[in-house]
Every structure is written in structure tokens, then in C-alpha cells.
Amino acid sequence: MKKLWKGNHALVEGALAGGLDAYFGYPITPQNEVPEYMSLRMKQEKRVFLQAESELASINMVFGAALTGKRAMTTSSSPGISLMQEGISYLVGCELPAVIVNVQRGGPGLGNIAGAQGDYFQSVKGGGHGDYRLITLTPFSVQEMYEMTRDSFDLAFKYRNPVLILADGVIGQMLEPADLPEKVPPRKEFPYSMDWILDGAAGRDSRFIRSLVMDEGGLEQHNYRLWDKFAKMEKEISWEEHGTEDADVILVGYGTSARINLDVYNSARKNGLKAGYFRLRTAFPFPSKRLSELSSRSGFLVTEMSMGQMVEDVRLAVSGRSDVEFYGRPAGGLPEEEKIYGILERMLK
């Protein structure tokens, strides 16, 4: 049955449904409802909750719990996620599963506390050091805050790689009806090998987990192996599209910007305009192939709550075959429907 849920609360329920064993976090607006609600829910479900002394500590506590094969996560907002980049790079280097949620706010610097989408580059181009990728999910609704968080643990263990949920302050703070189970569903065991975990060398050889690879050529081979894994993640590409079969211009967005696009798309279609709608559900892996196919007949209008980050990936996918225009607002500004509609009309002329 649908009930009114807040995005940040739904994500907590999603994590519980995904079998979260341990949460470590540090307060920051606009995601404070996560540690607050999580602290109660984890106690009720007899799981581990710890408020860390910093985001540096949070991500390294996640690292520690992940070493043991437990399902661990942290959540934060943009400045806090910046602090975690070193730890995220180590998680990838050590091939550890973990879930990290970024409820984005305006930046750069301390910025403000309004929902924004300025951390796309950081999320999908590698915010920390070294050659790496994160599976990046972009929830669009309170329902998806629940579902994507629930499903992110499976992805993290499947690839032994951190998964980032790239939400924003609007989705986090928003209240809307969502269909969540009354009770936390039973824990789903994953079919993946756990012969790597550190839990004490009882009845087996001792193990070690590291990201320092100093032997001749060893790090190069490690990187090739990681890269093969990132390539396999292509299977997880996910998006939603409407009206693309006959669209002359397709609106592209993710999260909150896609919600605004959906309204524009609906009114455009009502008025007989040949508009299409496309939204990312995964920002990495990116649906390049599909966008490339669509570019044979359609142009694109990309909207973001930033000065234009995801648009670069659209341009790469389209590779000059059709027009890609951009409209965005940074720092917590919401793209205006009238403006999007105006650009769309101009492009369709």
C-alpha cells in the first residue's frame, strides 16, 4: 500500500531491505534524516549503527566492515563525499563491496544546502585518485530511493566494487507516496564467492587485502583486471525513455532534472510537439549506445542542476551526429519548465 514517505527515510528502508549490516555516517544537511532515522531503525533491527567523528572515519569504518564481507554503507552530501574520495579509491583498489549515497547539495566549497547536481563529474569520472569507476545509480523518486538502495548491495558484491547512489537534496527531502513493505523483507543471500573475506584465519591460510602493489608490473595487471570488471558492468546499464520513436528532440536528464523534463515532455506532447524523454537510471555505466542510436533521427536537450556535466557524456555518445543543447542551473537552482519548453520549441522549428 502506498504511503507518504520522505526520500531520505525511504533510502534507509531500502538499505535495511538490502540486508545492510552496518552503517557509519556523519551528519550533514540535506541528508540528516538518514543517520537520524537509521540510528533508530538499526537498533530496532539489531544491526550496527555508529556515528563517526568525520567522513574520513565513516568511509574507513565502511572499509573495515567491508573487509569482513559484511554489507556496509555510509551516506553524506557533497562536501562530505569529497572527504571520502580517498577511501572510495582504496575500496576500489582493494575490491571491496560498499554502498555510498550522495544526497547532493550546491557547491563548490561549503556551497549551500539546496539540492543540486554538481557532483556528476566526481561520481562517474573518478573523484579520487587512480583509474577507477563506480557503479552510479541515479534515483528519480522516493520509490527509487528505496529500490535502488535495496538493490545496490547485490551490485556491490557482484562486482566487489563500491556502488554510489547519486541522489540530490530535492529527492532526499521530498515527500511523496511510495509503496514500501510493512516489514523488512528477509535477508537475501548472494550467490557470490566469499573466499576473500578477513574474519580470522581459522582452518584456512591467512589472507591479506591491500591496494599497494609494488611488484614489477603487478599494479599494471591489477588495473587491467579492474578495467575488465568495469567493462562487464555494461550489463547493468539502465534508463527510461518515452516518445523516442518519433521524437525530433529528446529531453535528457536524471534525478530531479528528469522529473522537470517529464512535465515538459507531457505538455509538449499534449500540444502536438514531437518531443522525447530520456532519463538515466545509471550514470555509470552510461547508456551511450542507446543515445547514439537515437541520434540518427533526434536532437537532444540536456538539462541538469549544474552548469553542464552529464551533457559531456551525451555529446560523446552522439559524437556530432545531431544537435545537443544544454540548459542548467547551478547552486540549487531548479531548471525552469518554461525555459526548457522555450528551447524545445526553438529546436523543433
Binding site: 574520513l56 572499509f63 573495515g64 573487509l67 577511501g87 582493494c94 580470522g200 591467512s206 587485502i209 591491500r210
Partner: peptide
């Protein structure tokens, strides 16, 4: 015995 290597300064958190 089982060992991991943490980021610089973070062993107590890990």
C-alpha cells in the same frame, strides 16, 4: 594472520 592495509592514519577507523 588476516591483515589489511588501510589509508594513511585510518587504521583505528578501519
Amino acid at each position: 594472520f588476516d591483515t589489511a592495509e588501510a589509508a594513511h592514519g585510518r587504521p583505528p577507523a578501519a
